[in-house]
Amino acid sequence: MSIQHFRVALIPFFAAFCLPVFAHPETLVKVKDAEDQLGARVGYIELDLNSGKILESFRPEERFPMMSTFKVLLCGAVLSRVDAGQEQLGRRIHYSQNDLVEYSPVTEKHLTDGMTVRELCSAAITMSDNTAANLLLTTIGGPKELTAFLHNMGDHVTRLDRWEPELNEAIPNDERDTTMPAAMATTLRKLLTGELLTLASRQQLIDWMEADKVAGPLLRSALPAGWFIADKSGAGERGSRGIIAALGPDGKPSRIVVIYTTGSQATMDERNRQIAEIGASLIKHW
Rank of each mutant, 00 (worst) to 15 (best):
L205M: 02
R273A: 11
G226N: 07
L74M: 08
L150T: 14
S128Q: 02
G251R: 10
P65Q: 05
K284G: 07
W286K: 01
R189V: 14
T261K: 15
I283E: 05
Y44R: 01
S264K: 13
E26K: 15
E166Y: 11
P105F: 04
R241L: 06
T267G: 12
T186Y: 11
R271S: 04
G141F: 05
K144F: 14
D174Q: 02
I54A: 07
D48N: 07
L79W: 15
G142K: 02
Q204P: 01
T69K: 00
N50P: 03
A230C: 07
Q203D: 07
V72G: 03
E270K: 01
T193Q: 04
N50S: 10
L136P: 09
Y260I: 03
Y103P: 02
D207C: 11
K232A: 14
S80A: 09
L188Q: 13
E35A: 11
A246S: 05
K252I: 09
M67L: 13
A170F: 14
L38V: 01
Q204W: 00
D33V: 03
I171V: 02
L282M: 08
N152V: 10
G279E: 13
V117M: 00
Q88T: 14
S233I: 14
D250F: 03
E62W: 00
T178M: 08
A280M: 15
S201F: 09
A230M: 12
D113E: 00
Q86N: 14
E61T: 11
I244V: 14
Y44G: 03
N130Y: 01
D177Q: 12
L191I: 04
A276Q: 04
L73E: 07
K32W: 02
R63K: 05
S51G: 01
G242T: 03
A200Q: 13
E56I: 09
W163S: 08
V157H: 02
E237C: 10
N272S: 01
V42A: 12
E175A: 12
Y95C: 02
E61H: 12
I140D: 10
S240D: 14
S51K: 01
E102W: 03
V78C: 07
H94W: 12
D269V: 08
R271L: 09
R81D: 08
E237W: 11
T158G: 05
V106A: 13
K32T: 02
I45K: 00
R202C: 14
I93L: 05
Q88W: 12
T187A: 11
A132Q: 06
I278E: 14
G216K: 15
L55T: 10
A183M: 10
N272C: 01
G114T: 08
M153G: 13
R63Y: 03
V101A: 06
L135S: 04
A133S: 07
T116H: 06
I45A: 00
T187R: 01
R159G: 04
G43W: 02
R118C: 03
D155C: 03
L79D: 15
G114K: 01
R238Q: 02
G52V: 08
A280L: 04
V101C: 05
A276W: 08
K32R: 02
P143G: 04
I140A: 11
L100K: 03
M209D: 02
A133K: 03
P165N: 01
L188R: 13
G263C: 14
A200Y: 15
S57P: 11
K32I: 02
K53F: 06
G76N: 12
S201W: 04
T112R: 13
S51C: 01
K109P: 15
Q37R: 12
A280Q: 10
C75D: 15
I229R: 04
I93Q: 02
V72K: 01
I93R: 04
N152F: 08
I278D: 10
V257L: 09
K53D: 09
D269C: 06
K32S: 09
R159P: 00
G263D: 10
A245C: 13
I45G: 00
A246I: 07
D250Y: 12
F149C: 10
H151F: 10
L79G: 12
H156V: 06
A123Q: 15
T147I: 04
I140Q: 13
A222N: 00
Q203G: 05
Q203C: 13
I54N: 07
I244S: 07
E62T: 00
G194R: 00
M184F: 10
H151V: 11
K32L: 08
M184G: 07
H156A: 06
I256C: 12
P253G: 05
K213D: 14
K213L: 05
T198A: 13
N130T: 15
R241D: 08
K109M: 14
I206Y: 14
N50Q: 02
P143E: 14
G279N: 02
P224H: 07
R176C: 14
M153T: 10
E56T: 14
R220C: 07
R189Q: 15
A246W: 03
L47R: 02
H24W: 04
L192N: 12
F149P: 14
L223Y: 14
M184C: 07
L136D: 14
H24R: 02
D129C: 00
T178D: 08
G39L: 12
A183Y: 06
L192H: 11
S281L: 09
L49R: 02
V101E: 04
A280D: 12
A148D: 14
V257C: 06
L74I: 14
T147H: 05
K190V: 15
D113H: 00
